[in-house]
Amino acid sequence: MAYVVRKPGSNINEAAIMDFVAKQVAPYKKIRHVSFINSIPKSPAGKILRRELVSHALSSRSSKL
């Protein structure tokens, strides 16, 4: 899964991102899902808070069921 923060005024979609990545990586590394978010959650030290991204993915997955 990829989390993407769009630049202001950008209209890029999931298919464009998945197609771009598919051309760059091996077949087993292709992206299956894309989620657009407002900002990447980071700690005060600047590290990405992956547990928050995981909880976001699980909550969005359960809401679709």
Rank of each mutant, 00 (worst) to 15 (best):
M1L: 12
A2N: 08
Y3P: 01
Y3C: 02
Y3N: 01
Y3M: 00
V4E: 02
V4M: 03
V5S: 00
V5W: 00
R6F: 01
R6H: 04
R6P: 01
P8M: 07
P8I: 03
P8V: 07
P8F: 07
G9W: 06
S10Y: 01
I12V: 15
N13F: 02
E14S: 14
A15P: 05
A16H: 06
A16R: 07
I17V: 10
D19P: 02
D19G: 08
D19N: 13
D19M: 08
D19F: 06
V21Y: 08
V21S: 04
V21H: 07
V21P: 05
A22W: 02
A22E: 11
K23W: 08
K23C: 07
Q24E: 11
V25Q: 00
V25F: 01
A26Q: 15
A26D: 14
A26M: 11
K29F: 05
K30Q: 12
I31L: 15
R32L: 13
R32I: 12
H33S: 10
H33V: 10
V34L: 02
V34H: 00
S35L: 11
F36C: 00
N38L: 09
N38V: 10
N38W: 06
S39E: 15
S39N: 13
I40W: 02
P41C: 03
P41Y: 03
K42W: 04
K42C: 08
S43T: 15
P44D: 15
A45C: 09
G46W: 00
G46K: 04
G46V: 05
G46T: 05
K47S: 06
K47Q: 07
K47M: 04
I48S: 06
L49G: 02
L49E: 09
L49F: 05
L49A: 06
R50E: 07
R50C: 04
R50T: 08
E52R: 10
E52W: 00
L53G: 03
V54H: 11
S55L: 13
H56G: 07
H56Q: 14
A57P: 06
A57M: 11
L58W: 03
L58G: 06
S59P: 00
S60D: 11
S60G: 11
S60F: 09
S62E: 13
S63V: 10
S63K: 15
K64D: 12
K64G: 12
K64P: 10
K64S: 14
K64M: 12
L65D: 11
L65I: 13
